[in-house]
Design a binder for these strands. Structure first.
Lengths: 366, 366
DNA sequence: TGATTGGGTGAATCAGGAG
DNA sequence: CCTCCTGATTCACCCAATC
């Protein structure tokens, strides 16, 4: 991590300029909630003639698509520079801007991994009944370079979704009630995002200690999620009012004692690879020992001195032999069983692997 | 209606050329399901090692984004010419193409009225667990000229949605089973859309007798919906195989006798699935809280930070733990109780779920 | 005849490291 | 750049076959 990276603080000013001052390839994740270019023309009134407090901030005024495109290209390019090659980027938007953002993002060689729809349980109705209720916003998740490794905590997402894969449709309520920051009863920011949304994004696509940057920090929802999950954060914001509110807010946030990210189900893909031969080196198994293809199967194989298996002239790795004997893609670790004389039972050789892996963990714990 | 408009028939050939031969400003609605430019590279296998029958049609091969953009601009421009000034256009796509389509559509001065997400109740999973399940596609609904009058049958939409405004999130299953056109058991078209989707689109945005045009007609789902709803249709398609299938299909379709078909089920009858972890995300419950297996039972479980329950080393979902403890198939929502300090009573956690599910009826703040 | 089981499948940008 | 090897990974629903 570059020493000159301003961690866990808010940078005051324009994000395009400030991003240029940060070191290249230094950030793991970027979450961006840019101006939506809403193009609202007239005031909007409810059926009871009360006025809707719509977004009318000066930072959301663009005179044309081309002006908005130029702005989008500038901040996306600046983000791309500071992102690590394996980093990913999230952008949220509505139909007013997300198609322009998405196309430009692809033009800049970001590679889309998913689009996710945030479906609002309590959207504002379409008062005049002239369109469908606009009940969702769109999130784009893209990696900097196509094909690069990226972080996706699949098991964490599963565990908070009743052990089913997390899908691209997310049901979350708007940021209302006590969560919504107010000053004298007036909402401080017109488009404050719910904390649960940022929490899920960071839990899904970052690891503890990662650096998360938000170029449109607003009142700091991204910072709150980062702190709670034990990630570093950098916020960029130019409105002093928002900065003051964010600083006050974040000073009270503490890491979760035991957050969602500490999944009890480890990601098996991220564990250390262990060759089968290591079981021989550790003395758990020996050349000449017999393995069985299942708890009851009569099919046997002999362990060779090279850490391979041999059956009827067929010799190969535990995976290859298991695959050929069963005529399907097989995992040798779970398919082959050894006989344990102490309890007179067969156990998968994966049990031995886990013993070694857990003993290595305790060693490195010192 | 121009006398030379070829109503209720399939035009055989390239849509860009054939659209140019039609009279300008003659069509009320266009629905377009263009190639998605999926850019698939390698084969994909399921965990059981079977091969996924991916889209590999010649009509979905483009060499670059710029080639796809040029194609998109050409057919959208041609569509725009034949559309009446009050006409509207629907396009469906996925994240591979929809951002390009949306941006080009805006550049051509179409004005977006809504984006709608078709959320699939039964999408294909992400077999490798490396991304979120891609569970939705996006529809864009745009008018030809900003500010023009357009057709939106608000009351019809309300009536098929339990008298609530129709929202921008639509839950519909994939086109499978008997609805899916097959020839000798093989699917005729790789991307046939469900009839219910087209039915809702036409019911929402056309009037009886309107002319509906589909430049990528495929096997004619748009034609089927048009006939059932008493609208005229024009289909353009260049693949003879699809044309033949569509002609055969449409020869058997008749107008619905009773207007809005009873085949369309109200949205609210399709229960939104809510993971237990959502109760934690909303703050109704917290990691470390105790749940009880019944209103009087002494059996307790602790909520883990991952949204699981833990009892005596047994960890799992609310359903799994309840099932194991009671040795029967159990519903965790109704079996587990939380203690409510405000009334000193235990209530089933399903009560909290109901609160979230009904939260869309609460007053909205934004 | 009704209930259960097993197989098939859907617009998918679906791995990563060693050699 | 390539090839080869290891070994991790799936949800809802329809339909046919079986009990």
């Amino acid at each position: 991590m570059p020493a000159d990276l301003p961690l866990d603080q808010i940078l005051e000013g324009d994000c395009i300029e400030l991003l240029a001052s940060l070191p290249a390839e230094s950030v793991d994740l970027i979450f961006a909630d840019p101006p939506y270019n809403l193009q609202l023309q007239n005031e909007l009134r409810r059926p009871d003639n009360s006025l809707v407090d719509a977004v009318n901030a000066h930072w959301d005024r663009f005179t044309s698509f081309s002006e908005y495109d130029a702005f989008t290209r500038a901040w996306l390019s600046a983000c791309r520079r500071v992102l690590k090659p394996e980093g990913t980027l999230w952008v949220i938007g509505s139909y007013h801007n997300i198609y322009r953002v998405g196309a430009i993002l692809q033009d800049l060689d970001f590679w889309i991994l998913n689009d996710v729809v945030w479906i609002k349980s309590n959207p504002m109705p379409n008062f005049r009944g002239v369109r469908f209720t606009n009940a969702h916003e769109t999130l784009l998740w893209a990696q900097k370079e196509r094909g690069a490794r990226y972080t996706f905590n699949h098991q964490t997402m599963r565990s908070i979704n009743d052990d089913l894969q997390m899908r691209s449709d997310w049901y979350l309520p708007l940021c209302v009630g006590r969560e919504r920051l107010r000053s004298n009863g007036v909402k401080l920011h017109p488009t404050q995002k719910p904390a649960a949304l940022l929490y899920r994004i960071l839990a899904a696509s970052t690891r503890p200690g990662d650096v998360v940057l938000d170029p449109f920090f607003g009142t700091g929802t991204t910072g709150e999620a980062a702190i709670r999950l034990g990630r570093h954060w950098i916020g960029i914001e130019k409105e002093p009012v928002y900065i003051e509110a964010a600083r006050k807010r974040l000073s009270c946030v503490h890491p979760d004692s035991d957050g969602i990210s500490s999944s009890e189900k480890p990601d098996l893909r991220q564990r250390i690879r262990l060759p089968f031969g290591t079981l021989l080196e550790y003395g758990y198994l020996h050349p000449g020992d017999i393995l069985y293809l299942g708890p009851d199967s009569a099919i046997q194989a002999v362990i060779t001195p090279q850490g391979k298996l041999a059956v009827d002239g067929l010799i190969g790795s535990i995976h290859k032999v298991a695959s050929q004997l069963q005529d399907r893609q097989a995992n040798g670790w779970t398919d082959w069983y050894y006989y344990d004389a102490s309890d007179h039972q067969r156990h998968p050789i994966d049990k031995l692997r886990q013993q070694i892996l857990s003993s290595q963990e305790t060693e490195s714990d010192e």
